[in-house]
């Protein structure tokens, strides 16, 4: 089954790997380079899933996540948060902001794929 997945990350090489994975799964892939772009893409395209980097320019992933959850039109969009900071407090903050799942970098591609499949099921 094919879904639209938005990848929001400012590190081009990470985007390349995520894009490759999602395409191989057969999803349609959109890419956003910063928080503002991500929010705009979410509003426009209503993706089934967002892979959201926590530390991005303009708006951080946490802010994007909170904004999505606060907007009734898009609040049901599933969000998987990615971050390079693995501390407990960040994890708590991410879940507090309303992310559905949370993966720390560097991530295992297999685990990530499993989570994505689960979330799109």
């Amino acid at each position: 089954m094919s879904a639209t997945v938005l990848i929001a990350d400012d590190e081009p090489n990470i985007v390349i790997s995520l894009e490759f994975m999602m395409k191989r799964e057969g999803h349609r892939v959109l890419v956003a380079r910063d928080g503002a772009e991500a929010l705009e893409a979410i509003r426009r395209e209503r993706p089934a899933l967002v892979l959201l980097d926590a530390t991005m320019p303009v708006h951080s992933g946490f802010e994007v996540c909170e904004a999505v959850r606060a907007d009734p039109a898009i609040r049901d969009i599933r969000i998987l948060m990615l971050t390079a900071k693995g501390r407990e407090t960040d994890m708590a903050r991410g879940l507090g902001a309303g992310a559905d799942a949370y993966v720390t970098k560097p991530f295992s591609t297999r685990e990530l794929l499993e989570k994505v499949r689960e979330m799109l099921a």
Binding site: E11, N13, I14, I16, S17, L18, F20, M21, R24, T55, A84, K85, G86, K105, P106, F107, S108, T109, R110
Partner: peptide, 25 residues
């Protein structure tokens, strides 16, 4: 330390993800 950790994780993420993908594909 928190900045170094962040800076180290970013390249590591790409390296690990891409290597795993090549291995699995």
């Amino acid at each position: 330390i928190s900045s170094v950790t962040h800076e180290l994780r970013t390249p590591l993420t790409s390296i690990r993800a891409l290597s795993e993908l090549m291995l699995d594909t």
